[in-house]
Design a protein around this nucleic acid. Structure first.
Lengths: 192, 192
DNA sequence: GAGTATACGGAACAATCGTTCCGCTTGCCA
DNA sequence: TGGCAAGCGGAACGATTGTTCCGTATACTC
């Protein structure tokens, strides 16, 4: 299903990377509303060159979002055995929000209810869900997070704060302060 | 600055109301991405008829958002002297989120960083800020909300949850459950 | 009821979008 | 090094957008 057919010609390979780099930057700056022309100009290539590698704009955007999600998932997996599960959980939460602010990404594209069942996308979504569940359960086992706080609520609050942080471009200081209140709501307390 | 010059002709007045009603419905359904043609069709009028009353699409959208914000502000003012400040505060918070889900509105249009300083808009924003501050301070005086929770954080969390609820269309049950965690984070606790 | 300011509808315009197409160029292999 | 598949750029296409314009229709006034 992912069979690499032919090795790309040297210039094609170089242009592919240019396009991805340009798309990365432009999408971070303008969101998914960015036009293909803008990306092509930023990459210093023609429109046809983009469409040779990516069948459609959606495919290009998906490639970027996919890569970003993969970074976060990888980070989450590295943290799966970190010393302090509670601190790890909250810091990872905060990091995702910061990431969303910097690279307008997850919120803009991931939970798009346009196309109902996108194979690749639901795959990465489930993986994200899986690693987040792991971090959450570990934090709960360590009595750092309330036991009645589920993965769906976690995803909802992550989406919420990421969307807001991206729309209003929260400063580091404001993000930490505001998230602090949210964290206090899901933190474990004696007499839960 | 708001001088009503001439009384509208009868048909013009009727069409104005039709346009507003259609815009209300279409914007709630499609968000600000809705086209003027869709609104015109829904209202059963021509494009020119809309532009006779509203100079631009932005003006029409603003009229709708303005009206919705006014409803919320009015409600907040009615609650300014409600019996239980704590319950009132949290219920109003929840109501705003529910409102945003039903009528795709505040989030889609209010905090648009496109045009920097819009007189009318900043006016309604400040009013919203004022009534929310009043409800917040009353809840804090009643020891229902933490004293270190400020109006900026309140606006941020309102925006966050409204955006998410609108994007993912939260059910009533899920909204109450998820907001419950947020509320627990800003609720007053002994030994604050 | 005639006359006129007002309002209407929707074709037309200009801008922008994603996407296609094709004449030309270029990297690769025999 | 000659041939050619692979790749390139960007003009062109069709769809959609917000907005304008103007010939026609209609509500008010005297």
């Amino acid at each position: 299903m992912d069979g690499e057919a032919k090795p790309l010609r040297a210039d094609a390979q170089r242009n592919r990377e240019r396009v991805l780099a340009a798309a990365e930057m432009v999408l971070a700056r303008d969101g998914t509303a960015a036009s293909m022309r803008t990306i092509a100009a930023e990459a210093g290539v023609g429109l046809g060159t983009i469409y040779r590698q990516f069948a459609t704009k959606e495919a290009l955007v998906e490639a970027i979002v996919f890569e970003r999600a993969r970074q976060l998932i990888e980070l989450a997996e590295e943290l799966a055995n970190a010393p302090d599960p509670g601190v790890t959980f909250f810091e990872f939460f905060s990091q995702i929000v910061e990431f969303s602010t910097r690279k307008r990404s997850l919120t803009d594209a991931l939970p798009d209810p346009d196309l109902a069942i996108d194979k690749d996308r639901s795959g990465i979504e489930q993986e994200m869900r899986r690693v987040l569940s792991a971090l959450l359960e570990r934090a709960q086992a360590a009595h750092a997070v309330r036991g009645d706080f589920g993965i769906d609520e976690l995803l909802a609050l992550l989406l919420a704060t990421s969307l807001a942080a991206e729309k209003a471009t929260w400063s580091d200081e404001f993000r930490e302060r505001t998230l602090g209140f949210v964290f206090d709501g899901i933190r474990y307390r004696t007499g839960d």
